[in-house]
Simulated scan of single mutants.
Amino acid sequence: MRLHGIDCPEKGQPFGQVAKQFANKAIYGKTVKVDSTDTDRYGRTIGIVWYDEPTQNLNEAFCFAVGVAVYAVMVLGFFAAV
């Protein structure tokens, strides 16, 4: 399974473990719904993952988390100004 629109690091890549932990924290033990959008060249489903009585979108949560991380590195690290 791959998240539609997300180039998520995979096992063994930098931040791969962090991405796995983020997803686990969001959806572990919950019922999820996957809206399939495609299949990749390895046969994995590409889709949008909904959880918490399909009101939460895991794909959007990843985007938000990455945006916050980029903001912290760029602005708080004095690489950019707001």
Results as ranks from 00 to 15, higher is better:
residue 2 R to L: 15
residue 3 L to D: 13
residue 4 H to D: 15
residue 4 H to F: 14
residue 4 H to M: 07
residue 6 I to D: 12
residue 7 D to S: 11
residue 8 C to F: 01
residue 8 C to E: 05
residue 9 P to I: 12
residue 10 E to I: 06
residue 10 E to M: 02
residue 12 G to K: 06
residue 12 G to E: 13
residue 12 G to F: 10
residue 13 Q to I: 05
residue 13 Q to H: 03
residue 13 Q to L: 02
residue 13 Q to N: 07
residue 13 Q to F: 07
residue 13 Q to P: 02
residue 15 F to C: 07
residue 15 F to E: 05
residue 16 G to H: 10
residue 18 V to M: 04
residue 18 V to Y: 04
residue 18 V to F: 00
residue 18 V to C: 01
residue 20 K to F: 09
residue 21 Q to W: 03
residue 21 Q to E: 13
residue 22 F to H: 12
residue 22 F to D: 02
residue 23 A to T: 03
residue 24 N to T: 10
residue 24 N to A: 06
residue 24 N to K: 14
residue 25 K to G: 04
residue 26 A to S: 11
residue 26 A to W: 06
residue 27 I to P: 00
residue 27 I to W: 00
residue 28 Y to S: 15
residue 28 Y to I: 09
residue 29 G to I: 07
residue 29 G to D: 06
residue 31 T to H: 03
residue 32 V to E: 00
residue 32 V to H: 00
residue 33 K to W: 02
residue 34 V to F: 01
residue 35 D to F: 01
residue 36 S to T: 10
residue 37 T to M: 13
residue 37 T to Y: 08
residue 38 D to I: 07
residue 38 D to S: 15
residue 38 D to H: 10
residue 38 D to W: 04
residue 38 D to M: 07
residue 38 D to V: 08
residue 39 T to P: 02
residue 40 D to C: 09
residue 40 D to T: 09
residue 40 D to I: 09
residue 41 R to L: 04
residue 42 Y to K: 11
residue 42 Y to N: 07
residue 43 G to T: 07
residue 43 G to L: 06
residue 43 G to F: 04
residue 44 R to T: 11
residue 45 T to C: 02
residue 45 T to W: 01
residue 47 G to C: 06
residue 48 I to P: 02
residue 48 I to Y: 00
residue 48 I to S: 05
residue 50 W to C: 03
residue 51 Y to E: 06
residue 51 Y to V: 00
residue 51 Y to M: 01
residue 52 D to T: 06
residue 54 P to I: 00
residue 54 P to C: 03
residue 54 P to R: 14
residue 56 Q to N: 11
residue 57 N to D: 11
residue 57 N to V: 08
residue 58 L to C: 05
residue 58 L to Q: 08
residue 58 L to W: 05
residue 59 N to A: 12
residue 59 N to M: 10
residue 60 E to S: 06
residue 60 E to Q: 15
residue 60 E to M: 08
residue 61 A to W: 06
residue 62 F to Q: 09
residue 62 F to E: 10
residue 62 F to M: 13
residue 62 F to P: 09
residue 63 C to Y: 02
residue 63 C to F: 01
residue 63 C to S: 12
residue 64 F to R: 11
residue 64 F to T: 15
residue 65 A to W: 02
residue 65 A to S: 13
residue 66 V to Y: 03
residue 67 G to F: 04
residue 67 G to E: 14
residue 67 G to L: 00
residue 68 V to T: 13
residue 68 V to C: 11
residue 69 A to V: 08
residue 69 A to T: 12
residue 69 A to D: 13
residue 69 A to R: 02
residue 70 V to D: 14
residue 70 V to C: 10
residue 70 V to G: 07
residue 71 Y to P: 01
residue 72 A to L: 01
residue 73 V to C: 08
residue 74 M to I: 03
residue 74 M to G: 05
residue 74 M to L: 06
residue 74 M to Q: 09
residue 75 V to Q: 10
residue 76 L to R: 14
residue 76 L to E: 07
residue 77 G to V: 06
residue 77 G to T: 13
residue 77 G to F: 13
residue 79 F to I: 12
residue 79 F to L: 15
residue 79 F to V: 12
residue 80 A to N: 13
residue 80 A to K: 14
residue 80 A to F: 02
residue 81 A to I: 14
residue 81 A to G: 13
residue 82 V to Q: 14
